[in-house]
Amino acid sequence: MVPPLVADIDGTLTRPDKSIDPRVFDPLRAWEAPVVIATGKSFPYPVGLCEFLGIPLNVVAENGGCVYVEDADEVAYNGDPEGAAAVAAAYREEGYDLGWGAVDAVNRWRETELAVSREQPLAPLERIAADHGMHVVDTGYAYHVKSPDVDKATGLESAARFLDRDPTEFVAVGDSENDAAVFGLAGRSYAVANADDAARSVADVVTEASFADGFLEALESVRADGRL
């Protein structure tokens, strides 16, 4: 029996050009235990990914801010949307931009946090976030402004509760600072070789391969062990 799985998207299920590697489709579909897709992206992205993969809609979005498990038919909101909105307003008032253009598809459907382009100034964002009791995490793809007591581990706790599982039953695979918390909660964790220092430092295993190749390596290792 394989354990339940919690998997990041960007840098983990993707190729270096940020596109999803299609080789992950069949292994995710074939996984015999629950699969939770956990990401910093806004709620519709992991839901859409699960839909197109043909797997149950078990998602942790916005770094733990939004959690949905299809069978439970319930959304858990763990974030602070008012704090995120206040930071966005103050950042703009000081003359800075979020960096995503007028339409801002990155934040358009975001419900509990704020994402700012990594091309924008970080120091004033961190200062403003702290003034509003918020925290900034660098995922390697964006600066995420979120509640300091919410992270992917918080999200996994919510998802595991909906699934009637213990979080320590899960195997986690990821690549970034925002995966480090869930690595500390899951029973076993794999950082793909392209992972940042924060993720690598707390992972049980760092794969030899990067990106989706590393993800597939992790799944093969879990199947070979047959246990956590």
Rank of each mutant, 00 (worst) to 15 (best):
A142I: 02
R161K: 11
R127N: 01
G79E: 08
P16N: 12
D131M: 14
V137Y: 03
L28R: 08
E217M: 10
K18Q: 13
V24N: 02
D213G: 02
E93I: 01
P22C: 01
A38Q: 07
V192K: 10
P46H: 09
S147W: 06
I128A: 09
I9M: 13
Y91T: 02
D179H: 07
T112C: 01
V59L: 04
A102E: 15
E82K: 15
V103T: 08
A212D: 02
D175Q: 12
G101W: 07
E32N: 07
S117H: 10
P16R: 14
P27W: 10
E177F: 07
D166M: 06
S201F: 07
Y91R: 11
D17W: 14
L122D: 00
L28A: 06
A212S: 14
A191L: 10
V59S: 02
L53D: 04
I20E: 04
I9S: 01
R110A: 00
D73G: 03
R188C: 06
A180G: 03
A218V: 10
A84D: 09
R223A: 04
A209L: 14
Y91L: 04
P27Y: 13
H135M: 06
S176V: 07
P167D: 06
V136N: 06
L49C: 00
I55Y: 04
T39V: 06
D197C: 00
V6K: 08
V150D: 00
D197N: 08
G11Y: 14
E62M: 01
D196R: 14
S117L: 11
V59R: 07
E119Y: 09
W100T: 03
G226C: 07
D131A: 15
G83D: 10
S158F: 02
A172F: 03
G184F: 13
K18M: 03
T139K: 08
Y45W: 11
S210C: 03
V136S: 01
G40A: 13
R161Q: 05
D197Q: 13
G187A: 14
W31R: 05
V67C: 00
M1S: 13
V6P: 01
D197P: 00
L13R: 14
P16L: 12
G11H: 10
L28D: 04
V87P: 02
P124E: 07
L125R: 13
T12F: 11
Q120N: 05
R92K: 15
L5R: 13
S19G: 06
R110T: 01
D175V: 09
G133P: 07
D175L: 10
E113V: 08
D8Y: 13
C50L: 05
R29M: 04
G83M: 13
R118Q: 12
E220N: 12
H132E: 05
H144G: 01
Y141E: 01
A209H: 15
D166E: 15
V106D: 03
L185M: 08
G65V: 03
Y141H: 12
R118S: 02
S117I: 08
Y91D: 00
G101E: 08
A193K: 15
T14F: 13
